[in-house]
Amino acid sequence: MTAASLLSSPEIYPLMTTLWRTLAAFIASLLLAIVFALVGQINPLCKAVIKDLMSFVIRIPSIASISFFVLLCGTGALTIYLSVMTVVIPVACLGILGIYEKINPGMTTINRVYRVPFVRQAFYLYLPTLFGSFHAIFILSYSLTFKALIMAEFLGGLSGLGYGLMLRRETLDLNQLSAYILLIALAGLFSQSVLERCARWLTRHYAPI
């Protein structure tokens, strides 16, 4: 198969749509999770509130959140993004909070004795600590984003691999459906591998010792 025939294939558009959406939803979810986790470090009350909130949201089944957003916003990209973020943010946020609980408790003393401003704590202490143990959360969050996104496209989308899967299910052709599932799994694996390499390169200065 030549590159030209691959690019002209009817499957390339939904594939690119899904990969783009996955990347956008993943980055947005991760950034918001980091913000929530950082806010949780301000004081024990903030931490307790954020932990309880995330523990509550994580228990909402993804099918329930998709149904909710379909009724709220209709089918389309917005529903997909909101559904995916509802699934991914709590997982990533609780993971990051777990990393922060392993931070040397002596640093709390240092922060208070030297009256280190919170912004400086965030940039010098919390973010570098996060990058040191980032990869486990990164892989888990990305896999979850991809799976949640396919499901959201299946139930509430008008394009993408998940939507294509729904159309193929309607044909009742098992071979075609199997090939499509294989395409989805390969797309997830390949995109995760590329993204993982990019993340390792970006956080190379913070690699674990």
Binding site: N104, G106, M107, T109, I110, Y114, V116, R120, Y124, L125, P128, T129, F131, G132, Y206, I209
Partner: peptide, 17 residues
Amino acid sequence: NDTLIEEIGLLKNLTYV
């Protein structure tokens, strides 16, 4: 006990405070 930020450099550990 050790109370340094191990992930950042020597100078940054000082400019932290």
